[in-house]
Design a protein around this nucleic acid. Sequence first.
DNA 1: ACCATGACGTTTC
DNA 2: CGAAACGCCATGG
Length: 116
Amino acid sequence: MKNQIRHKEISFFDKVYQVVRLIPKGKVTSYGAIAKYLGAARSARMVGWAMNNSHVCKPHVPAQRVVNRMGLLTGKQHFGTPNMMQKLLENEGIKIKDNQIQNFEKHFWDPSKELL
DNA sequence: ACCATGACGTTTC
DNA sequence: CGAAACGCCATGG
């Protein structure tokens, strides 16, 4: 992949990574919210795909804080071990049951609102 | 340029 | 209420 900045333009993926890094500890957001913040509300799939490539990203991308709109840990399988994502979130004070984040709205962090 | 992929989201059945 | 079908769009081959 092109990866990083070949010219001056920043890739869609890189934008996603930056937003994900801005998610406060103990907070979570959805792919759609990130996509919306990036101006591509209908590109939620791209956000998820960007996370798939997040493993090539330099620092640690807290992809565990990014879930689908229902607060479901859909991408936990991509953390190497199936329980890694849940454990990371629980370590931040988030309760999860059956891959579902409890009090999802309470932990939800909307970049287009909070970050502004 | 065309086709396949994808950690989503909405609608439909 | 759950599963499937569609839509959506950036990226790679």
